[in-house]
Simulated scan of single mutants.
Amino acid sequence: MSWVALPAMAHPHGWIDYRVAVMVDDQQRVTALEQSWKMDPFQSLTMVEGLESVTGEESMAQRLDALGHEIAANLATQHYLTHVYDGEEELTLGGIEDYTTRLDDNRVEFSFIVTLAEPQPLSESLRWQVYDGTYFIEFLYDDQIERPVELVNAPPQCHGEVVHADPDPAVVARVSAIDITGETPEGIGRLFSDTGVIKCQDA
């Protein structure tokens, strides 16, 4: 997955700092994941320079909106790079409901809500991963904020946690040696993906 051209280097070629808010309805069902993705400084600079070079009278805000539309359309063909599981069963997603694109401290931030096709009971069996299957872009939970995973409208005894990936060192070495012209096996990004989980204490 790439929205910009990047120079040759070992995988991954860029990163995204992200956070997730799990949306819970009044029936204590998980309905959607609200995500915010902040592109790394180089990706952001390249994107902004591209937007500035486009001829026309549109404001930067309008151009960012157009970029968001392009990103959303691209994600729709890639399962939104979002995978939600109930146990070992992967759940079907609905689609993107809302999205915005803005600049935050000179970094492009894309925020959106991706729904589940069917609401799921709030349960510790639910978990999710966000990743680029080719590992071209690395997704990292934003460590600059206190809670990169939140539950919205959940009971107070429930909260979200991050389980960090622990890939085999041999896999790490093999993937890091692949340059920009090399191909990684589709799905390899999952091995490097942190997992969001739900923890609920007894009431």
Rank of each mutant, 00 (worst) to 15 (best):
P156R: 04
H164W: 09
Q157I: 09
P167S: 08
A154W: 04
T184M: 01
P167W: 01
G187W: 01
P167Q: 03
V152C: 01
E183L: 09
D166V: 14
V152N: 11
A173N: 09
G182K: 05
A154D: 04
G182M: 10
V162L: 06
E183M: 05
G160I: 12
R174M: 09
D179W: 05
D168F: 08
A170R: 15
H159Y: 13
A170Q: 14
A170N: 11
A177F: 05
I180T: 15
V163H: 11
V152I: 10
E186M: 15
E183V: 08
A177M: 13
V152R: 00
G187I: 04
T184H: 08
V172G: 08
P185H: 07
V152G: 02
P169Y: 01
A177D: 11
H159T: 01
N153S: 08
E183F: 15
V163Y: 13
C158G: 06
T184D: 07
R174A: 14
G182W: 14
P156S: 10
D168R: 10
V171Y: 04
P169F: 00
V162H: 04
A177G: 14
S176M: 07
P185I: 09
V172A: 10
V171H: 14
R174P: 13
V163K: 15
E161Y: 07
G160C: 00
E186F: 15
G182L: 01
P169L: 04
V172Q: 13
V171E: 02
N153F: 07
G182F: 11
G160M: 02
T184I: 03
P155L: 07
N153E: 12
I180L: 15
P167T: 00
P169Q: 07
Q157K: 08
E186C: 12
V175E: 00
C158E: 05
V152Q: 02
V152D: 09
A170S: 12
N153K: 05
D168C: 09
E183A: 13
D168W: 07
P185E: 14
A165I: 01
I180D: 12
A170T: 03
A154T: 06
A173I: 03
V152W: 10
V175D: 00
C158W: 00
V175H: 00
A154C: 07
D179C: 05
S176I: 11
H159Q: 03
A173Y: 03
V152P: 06
I178K: 08
T184Q: 03
H164R: 11
T184V: 12
A165Q: 03
A173D: 11
A177Y: 11
A177S: 15
A165T: 05
V172M: 06
A173T: 10
N153A: 12
A177K: 02
T181P: 02
C158P: 01
I178R: 09
A165E: 00
D166M: 08
G160S: 03
A173G: 07
P156T: 11
I178Y: 06
A177I: 07
T184C: 04
P156E: 10
P167A: 04
Q157L: 15
H159F: 11
H164P: 05
P156M: 08
D166G: 04
P169I: 05
D179G: 04
D179F: 01
E161C: 04
P155N: 06
P167G: 02
P155A: 05
S176L: 13
P185M: 05
G182P: 09
R174G: 06
V175M: 13
P155D: 02
G182D: 12
